[in-house]
Design a binder for these strands. Sequence first.
DNA 1: CTGAAAGCGCTAACAT
DNA 2: ATGTTAGCGCTTTCAG
Lengths: 334, 334
Amino acid sequence: MAVTIKDIAKLANVSITTVSRVINNKSEGVSEETRNRILQLVKELGYQPNAIARGLVTKKTKTIGLIIPDISNPFFPDIARGVEDSAHIYGYNVFLCNTDDNLEKESEYINALKEKYVDGIIFTSSSIPKHEHITDLIKSGIPVVIMDRRIDSEDIYGVFLDNYEGGYIATKYLIDLGHKRIGCITGPLYISNAIERLEGYKRALVDNEIEVDNRLIFEGDYKINSGIIGAEKLLEHEVTAIFASNDLMAYGAYKAIRSYGYKIPDDISVVGFDDIQLSQILEPQLTTIRQPAYDMGLTAARMLIKLIEGKKMNKKIANFRPQLIIRQSTKDIV
Amino acid sequence: MAVTIKDIAKLANVSITTVSRVINNKSEGVSEETRNRILQLVKELGYQPNAIARGLVTKKTKTIGLIIPDISNPFFPDIARGVEDSAHIYGYNVFLCNTDDNLEKESEYINALKEKYVDGIIFTSSSIPKHEHITDLIKSGIPVVIMDRRIDSEDIYGVFLDNYEGGYIATKYLIDLGHKRIGCITGPLYISNAIERLEGYKRALVDNEIEVDNRLIFEGDYKINSGIIGAEKLLEHEVTAIFASNDLMAYGAYKAIRSYGYKIPDDISVVGFDDIQLSQILEPQLTTIRQPAYDMGLTAARMLIKLIEGKKMNKKIANFRPQLIIRQSTKDIV
DNA sequence: CTGAAAGCGCTAACAT
DNA sequence: ATGTTAGCGCTTTCAG
């Protein structure tokens, strides 16, 4: 049996109320003397508050849930780290939940988190077409911050990247280098950010009087393999450059391009998206669109905690801007 | 106010005990009829059990803590995913905690997790020299599984890799390729696995009548940069091969080797350790020692949950064996 | 400055 | 088969 407030109260010859007061640093209300006596006991006995009991009465658990598709996808660890760091600073712990973009698992986790009375949830979901479970969640009153993938619904708090702009500047950069046959390997087109990046790509072409050729667009799934397959397809159509919607698929493209005996960037230029850590280690280092994942995680958690604690916020949406990082996988056409 | 057991009881004209019984699927003790009536109400009202209240009385929270150095270190996401998958299967949620190998943060998280009454903890700690906080934790009675980094203490549950063997086979492989001047970039030598890998390296040399030359041993910190610096140092001593104690440092070595104008593997062979995902994407693909991170995570969580639930286990330690994955960064000496 | 009492939502003896 | 009661450890009125 762990030592409780009651044990302390008995030994200090005070009521549990008084002990509770000093443990919670309640403003004054306790004499210096008794406060010290209690603090002393707390230390001696190694008293630790029982957060469960506390939570039962306060309805606050100092706990948040982080729901993401997959922590082993290299894009998410940085986000998770940002969320956790932020949470830790404010005294919160975070439940990690991996959904694999699976609707059923999303609902399972939402339920589990509700039963455990988390104070709030950070959600990265793919389920654009069907997201009643999320709007229901929000309606249920629990603070929610949506991250990375948009959900169209009024009255949502979220942190996002301008993916459209990202797609645009990636493509524009290739165009400026003289490329005209630019292939695009997209993410799964049921995910908002994949759609947006594709839109940016198309728009950049149109703005520069290059026709959008659907044969130069390949729908991938954000995984390496689809980058390989996509690039193979695109090479058949004689592209001189490839914009991959994430770095992982760009790596796949590297493989395919090499297996065809082409050189990067001399024969084919490649631009990625995300700027995950390994992109600067690859040879040639990948030119890509940076997404400030850690900061986004940090911000999401900070927003959520403000929401939870009823602090006011200037805005409900934090928009981050993508940044073109020019490295060695792109080259102008001579 | 969420609906409670009491609400259901009132509407069903039964006692809360009865409701509790059906919610927990208590063996019989309730007539088919009342059971159905209650189940119906549960569904209609969308009743969700309050895990906090339940935890207060049962002292079980169906929650575990995962304490690791840093989720954004590419070695840990796979472990974390394994742990979380396993936990999810058994109905547990997991708290993610990043310590940065910082003793103080470790203690902070231990405290927080105890206050939140997690049922058990999976711990990957660096603090070999000082680990009273961990032994204290174990003595306190809460189930703990140590992962990846050893702690010498009796009576510990853990899942480990045979790092000594890993260091040995990596080095032995290079020796078999004809290398004699083999450099070693170690991890931080206060971490058990770094020490063990180094021991394996030394032993392989000795077993093959190659003298251990301390100038060929560089203590890194498991990060990319120290791989660069380490490789530079080693190249000055004219090594023909480098064994890096993790893949990240091997990537650093790649960089250094190239900046010296050497080719991998023609001039210098490199072997890594871990086999993180990106090692097969790099050019040339990295020859390395595979560590089954996902499986280790899976196993750690399964062990922990068995411990928690009082199931018996055949053994307290799960040892995994490293595996040499030969790819393209190593070559025999002609 | 301090305490008594109620109650958070649930489980677990113990009755009936 | 069902209900009564106590109580988990804490916070929170409300009194004094």
